[in-house]
């Protein structure tokens, strides 16, 4: 209560800063976001029905979901594994690896796409021709889209799990081991329950990021209608072909999922804090 009192006595500057921040966020984020919803429903449900009746759009949505789920599974397994290795073990190059794991966050998606084409491209890539001879086409096919999506979302699970692992320490794990638990039992019964919220946030954020990847996918997918076109590519194509209704409706669906992911994380996160 004293805290509250003191805050309240702070002068009128408080209202000025509050107003500036609210107006800034309203103009930059809230209002534009609202307008997309408004444009989507300008003709009632026609726009949404229009895209959901279009088999190519439905295929694109399905492809996006499949790619995102595969990418999230890969990144979760890899992310939890590498987080445990980095926090719990010492090996040469640990610090360098830790720095390198953040690289995907600051690389341009176009550069990500280019990098994958240079290695896995079917004609002149380093490994591409060999893989194609073995019957696996990566670039301009679904595996390439999965690689690109996995690349851009790679650090998200790690960034959520590492701080939690550091915080919980090793006492319980050591106790379990001294009582005869195997490594697998310790992981399943002690470590995993302790990091489950960190993993959950990581998964939700990775999912949002994976569903929405655009630049890297554009380079590696070839954007073939009904085959390798994803939802974000549909938004671009519809808008450039003057189908604004379709573009807004597809964008609305993507935005809905993204906002839902953030709200879910912001609702579950505080429950863990007062622990």
């Amino acid at each position: 209560m004293a805290e509250r009192q003191r805050l309240r006595t702070r002068g009128p500057g408080r209202f000025v800063t509050r107003a500036i921040v609210t107006a800034y966020l309203f103009l930059l984020v809230a209002w534009p976001l609202w307008l997309v919803a408004q444009n989507t429903f300008a003709d009632g449900f026609d726009n949404l029905r229009g895209i959901l009746d279009d088999p190519d759009v439905v295929h694109a949505l399905q492809l996006t979901v499949v790619v995102a789920v595969v990418a999230v599974v890969i990144n979760t397994v890899f992310g939890v594994g590498i987080s445990i290795l980095i926090v719990r073990y010492r090996f040469p190059g640990r610090r360098l690896l830790n720095a390198l794991l953040d690289v995907p966050l600051s690389v341009s998606p176009i550069v990500v796409g280019l990098a994958l084409v240079l290695v896995y491209g079917g004609r002149s890539g380093w490994f591409g021709p060999g893989l194609e001879d073995a019957g696996l086409q990566v670039i301009f096919a679904t595996p390439g889209i999965i690689l690109a999506t996995t690349f851009v979302a790679l650090p998200l699970v790690i960034r959520e799990v590492v701080p939690v692992l550091e915080e919980i320490g090793t006492e319980q794990e050591q106790a379990a081991q001294s009582l005869g638990a195997t490594a697998a039992q310790t992981f399943r019964r002690i470590t995993l329950p302790a990091i489950r919220w960190g993993v959950t946030y990581g998964v939700v954020l990775s999912l949002a990021r994976s569903l929405g990847e655009f630049g890297a996918v554009k380079v590696v997918s070839g954007n073939v209608l009904g085959e390798t076109r994803t939802a974000t590519l549909v938004v671009e194509e519809k808008y450039l072909n003057f189908d604004q209704g379709g573009a807004y409706a597809t964008a609305f669906l993507l935005a809905l999922v993204a906002v839902a992911c953030i709200v879910v994380v912001s609702i579950i996160r505080p429950k863990e804090e007062p622990r």
Binding site: V21, T22, L25, L27, V29, A30, W31, P32, L33, L35, V36, N39, P109, L205, A208, R209, L211, G212, E213, F214, G215, T232, V235, E236, Y239, A247, Y248, A251, L254, A255, A258, V259, C261, I262, V263, V265, S266
Partner: peptide, 26 residues
Amino acid sequence: RALEVLIDVPFALPTIVAGLVLLSLY
């Protein structure tokens, strides 16, 4: 709380959608 959520929107929103979102107001 609503402002908190708004801060994270640009992080999770697909970039192509972000472009469209801004285009609708600006």
